[in-house]
């Protein structure tokens, strides 16, 4: 189904349509559905990420303590990828 959507979005590259990850389309729909006015951007998220990851490591409820950073990490793939890598590094070195 998502391939069909991609063919519609990118009509002259039908042979490449299958490369689109359906999860990205689903994520877009959810991102639209849940868009909120107070979302922070990647820059603000990065500023707070060291505190956020330490809270996470300390077992604190990050959704409560830093809800906007948590929200951004749910929405932004590159920021989430970096957060998970940082968490892995710090956990492994503890």
């Amino acid at each position: 189904m998502f391939d069909k959507l991609m063919r519609a979005l990118f009509p002259s590259r039908r042979h490449e349509a299958a490369r689109v990850d359906p999860l990205i389309v689903k994520s877009l729909v959810r991102g639209i559905m849940t868009a909120r006015p107070d979302e922070i951007g990647c820059g603000e998220c990065f500023e707070e990420l060291d505190c956020f990851v330490e809270m996470k490591l300390a077992g604190r409820d990050v959704t409560e303590a830093m809800p906007l950073v948590h929200d951004h990490l749910q929405r932004c793939g590159p920021c989430r990828e970096e957060f998970e890598a940082l968490l892995m590094a710090l956990r492994s070195m503890a």
Binding site: E54, L86, A89
Partner: peptide
């Protein structure tokens, strides 16, 4: 607000 090494590792990542 965090450990310096956490901040530094964040930049490295």
């Amino acid at each position: 607000e965090s450990r310096f090494t956490t901040w530094a590792q964040k930049i490295a990542v």
